[in-house]
Design a protein around this nucleic acid. Structure first.
Lengths: 322, 322
DNA sequence: AATGATTAATTAATCGTTTAATCAAATAAG
DNA sequence: CTTATTTGATTAAACGATTAATTAATCATT
């Protein structure tokens, strides 16, 4: 590999001058800069990241810890972060926390040992990851998580959906959660509850076993099902079809997150999107400030979600119990 | 941060001795090793990756370039790679090639500039990424791609599915591809064609507009639809339901890749899984050899796929045209 | 007891880059 | 014409770890 030393030799100056010329610091005459630049890219010089990291104490690399990636939302966040990081000249080292909290902790440690400048953690549901004191960290979870610096407004998203469903005239609704240990899902349920308003009857069910109760509840008058994720909504849709109920004619259905499958299924799913781009940008803004020890990064910011109305929701066939 | 130098000072020896004691090289007395070890973890010493990388010329970091992550299979590969890499003491730096070939090329360059020891590239469909001469690279694509060192056996997977469908007695089948530019999908189609055998009538359709033709082809006698991905299969399923055809009673349906949505939908999708774990392991084996300049890494290996029979396939209602 | 072999530690150089301190030459000011 | 000041470069140290070469001390051998 060609180093600054070789350039120095070629041009006949000291390495310090080469460094100064290339980084634009110190005093170097204009035409010397020119000669050095020319020589550098003629020789195909690429600065050594290791040497820079060693000298500066900064790797320009961030660690990203993600939960099990089966949920297609996480890759989207990862991608947004990757794009945003790249724009800031930062690299992203991935760490998988697959499964339990202890592995998550291990992943954090490994990344720190690799010399990352900062960490972005999307916690396992129900866990509280801890980063070493001296490593700047941003946690992306949900607003009601006290430690969180950045998150989508899951409650707000729920409100949007709830208001939409209530606005269509539904007044007996099933709320479907996947795992009650997840604070995100709790917040979504809370939001939906708020959005629906006090007048609407609500049945909150958790887990896949809930599918079995759909039949009974619908026959007792429920006219809409609101799931805490698109995937769950797909499952509910399948369950409904088994008992010959159609969406949205018999039952309206909503999801969360706007996954690709939401447009692949029929009817296309009414759902709520989070602006992963904005979350990524803001996470990095905060993290950059923390790393540079800059004052008062705007903490606890919440990124609004947006309603995507498609064809899985409609007015109820007739008012059920009122 | 605590360095080797501070330990040396504490214990009252030279840094060389500390280094030797900690790495187990050179000559150090047993109890000196003990004292140094003790002091090291009392002070909370963590070796500097930057310094090591500078001295050794190896970063122990691999670059992973992935196409647009909307396809949920890629995260799964990323996760498998991440786990396999970790077991080998390697880190993974991600690069997003979102969209076009030129960005993919940029992503490769950026990773190389960050000093990765090697690259793993999952190419954009229809592109030929190039890594700089001196950077060991493994490409994960499909066996018919000449440059590829590792891949799932997409043709074999297709054969498995084709044989399964033919074995059930179907003899008029629709093959559904998403994008004909993708070599992977071409191979899958080829495999399915082979697996079905010469006696079966095949209609090959590409793209989402193909959904419109399903009605006609089925009424003309087609009894099964085989898609090149689970997502596409979900789309087909929705299209079928719109024209009141049920799966598998009226039409059998198969996918590819065993995505989570395959079990969320009803009936659960018959599909084919790739062993991402094995692909990851083998990729890293090959890459490690290339990096260490070891001889003859087993090239062009193909990892078999496995059939997952669920409830979206059944014997045709009655033999259509024979 | 003198020589050689072995053991345990140290010295010093190195990886590639940055940067504070220094220096010589040229220019400006008195 | 001497004294400041500015300019453009160099020297040398530093970042943290590794390692070949070296030295000093211990032990065994004849």
């Amino acid at each position: 590999m060609v180093s600054i030393k070789q350039i120095a030799q070629h041009v006949g100056v000291s390495t310090a001058t080469v460094s100064n010329a290339l980084t634009g610091k110190g005093r170097v005459s204009a035409d010397m800069v020119d000669r050095i630049r020319r020589c550098a890219d003629q020789l195909g010089y690429r600065p050594s990241p290791a040497a820079r990291a060693l000298k500066s104490g900064q790797s320009n690399i961030l660690g990203l810890v993600m939960p099990d990636l089966t949920n297609p939302l996480f890759p989207r966040i990862a991608q947004s972060l990757s794009i945003a990081a790249e724009a800031r000249g930062l690299g992203i080292l991935i760490g998988d926390s697959r499964g339990d909290a202890s592995r998550q902790q291990q992943a954090v440690m490994r990344l720190v040992d690799r010399g990352v400048d900062g960490l972005i953690i999307v916690p396992q549901k129900g866990t509280s990851p801890e980063a070493p004191r001296h490593v700047p960290t941003v946690i992306i979870n949900t607003a009601s998580d006290q430690r969180t610096t950045v998150s989508a407004d899951h409650v707000g998203g729920g409100i949007l959906l709830g208001a939409h469903i209530a606005g269509l005239g539904h007044n007996d609704v099933i709320l479907l959660g996947g795992d009650r240990i997840s604070q995100v899902q709790q917040d979504r349920i809370d939001g939906m509850t708020q959005g629906l308003g006090a007048a609407v009857t609500k049945h909150i069910l958790w887990g896949k076993s809930a599918f079995d109760q759909l039949d009974r509840l619908v026959s007792q008058g429920a006219t809409a099902i609101m799931a805490t994720s698109d995937m769950l909504a797909l499952g509910a849709h399948s369950a409904l079809m088994q008992i010959s109920l159609s969406v949205p004619a018999d039952v309206s259905l909503t999801g969360f997150d706007d996954l690709p499958l939401g447009t692949a299924m029929h009817p296309a799913l009414t759902t709520v999107v989070q602006n992963t781009q904005a979350i990524a940008e803001h996470s990095l803004d905060v993290l950059s400030c923390l790393i540079l020890d800059r004052p008062a990064p705007p903490l606890g910011r919440v990124i609004p979600m947006h309603l995507v109305t498609r064809h899985s929701t409609a007015a109820p066939r007739r008012a059920a119990n009122s």
